[in-house]
């Protein structure tokens, strides 16, 4: 059995339907009306020990809600969750020792206390031995540069400092599974790099990792698997490389031509392909669909017209891919594999 197993995970929030103002509030007291809202809608997910999973989707897709369901903060409306054999919301205490959680938008440090005191409180809650605690602090200090932060009251930390201290707090007890909800939100580039470096190390240590983020740079080196959700449903689940492969239909080739050539001539030779002039008269960019043309066909076509000096094939950036997935552009492609049923499901909804 997988370390994390979720089946048909669903969370429905009831939102009070209330007219604005005092009158609305009073009316709501008498006549309670609610609107149901499916934040997470039948998600199946299993994560093996040692895996690191990126969990992405547009704003409001249900990422944070899923994490809250997996960690036992919320009780699922329907569906089951098992984490290391325990049901998180009923075996709260057992589950708590296995997991570390960070919500990037919120701190778990006690607001009025120095960071050191917060960490010491967590030590007591997790029953860490003094020796283990000391060793962990040293390790976390190495990667996160904690030492300067320890005497500072949480309220006075800058965002980047707070996030480092929060990461330490989430990982102090060396949890088996770590859930990170937007761990790099609002950080500057240097702190971001530091956090990413830390995540890589975490993964090398064999920690199971689930990470949500809007900054796909976070996942590039850290996660090998990506799960994309939208409107509470899973629309892709597979290796990162496979996603690029499958969804990145569009490839771009930049060519340095031996002599200036009008783009029309090239376009004539290459129907169904977009040819755009570059900055210099000898530069063109050819954008083509990987499923209808191969790179070889394109080069051959260009060579018919003019000699080529240099060429460069752009790697598909996951940003581009994900952007298109969000925009719903890539779901219409019928394809074999798990992505297809997701596409069909979402088609039904449309």
């Amino acid at each position: 059995m997988s370390l994390v197993e979720a089946q048909g995970l669903t969370k429905i929030f009831r939102r009070p339907e209330k007219d604005p103002g005092l009158r609305g509030s009073l009316k709501h007291l008498v006549q309670r009306r609610f609107k149901e809202f499916r934040a997470v809608d039948g998600i199946d997910l299993s994560i093996e020990a040692g895996e690191s999973v990126a969990y992405v989707g547009p704003n409001g897709a249900g990422k944070s809600t899923t994490i809250k369901l997996l960690t036992g903060i919320l009780v699922p409306t329907s569906g089951t969750v098992r984490v290391a054999g325990a049901e998180p919301h009923t075996d709260r205490m057992v589950n708590a020792r296995n997991i570390g959680v960070l919500f990037g938008q919120r701190t778990q440090l006690w607001w009025d206390l120095p960071v050191r005191e917060s960490l010491a409180l967590l030590r007591d809650m997790y029953d860490l031995s003094p020796a283990f605690y000391k060793q962990r602090l040293e390790r976390l200090d190495d990667v996160l540069g904690l030492a300067d932060l320890l005497p500072v009251v949480a309220r006075k930390l800058s965002l980047g400092q707070r996030m480092r201290a929060d990461l330490a707090a989430a990982l102090l007890h060396q949890p088996k599974i770590v859930y990170l909800d937007e761990p790099t939100i609002g950080l500057d580039i240097s702190v971001k790099d530091r956090v990413r470096q830390f995540l890589r190390e975490l993964r090398q240590d064999g920690t199971t990792l689930m990470l949500t983020t809007h900054d796909l740079g976070d996942i590039e080196d850290v996660c090998e698997r990506i799960v994309i959700i939208d409107e509470g449903r899973k629309i892709f689940d597979g290796p990162l490389a496979q996603m690029k492969d499958r969804f990145a239909r569009v490839r771009r080739m930049r060519l340095q031509l031996a002599e200036p050539t009008p783009v029309e001539k090239l376009a004539e030779r290459l129907p169904d392909v977009e040819v755009v002039a570059g900055d210099a008269p000898t530069e063109v960019t050819v954008t083509f669909d990987r499923f209808t043309h191969t790179a070889g066909q394109i080069i051959a076509g260009v060579l018919d017209v003019v000699e080529v000096g240099e060429l460069h094939l752009d790697e598909p950036a996951i940003e581009d891919v994900v952007r298109k997935v969000y925009a719903g552009e890539l779901l219409r492609i019928p394809e074999p594999g798990p992505a297809r049923d997701a596409a069909e499901r979402s088609g039904e909804r449309a």
């Binding site: 809250k68 960690t71 036992g72 020792r97 919120r106 967590l122």
Partner: peptide, 22 residues
Amino acid sequence: HGELDYPLIRPAPVLVQVVSAG
């Protein structure tokens, strides 16, 4: 503010964490 999230993921009774937070 949804600030019971963290107490809920710690291995200690939520009530104790709430009561002693000040």
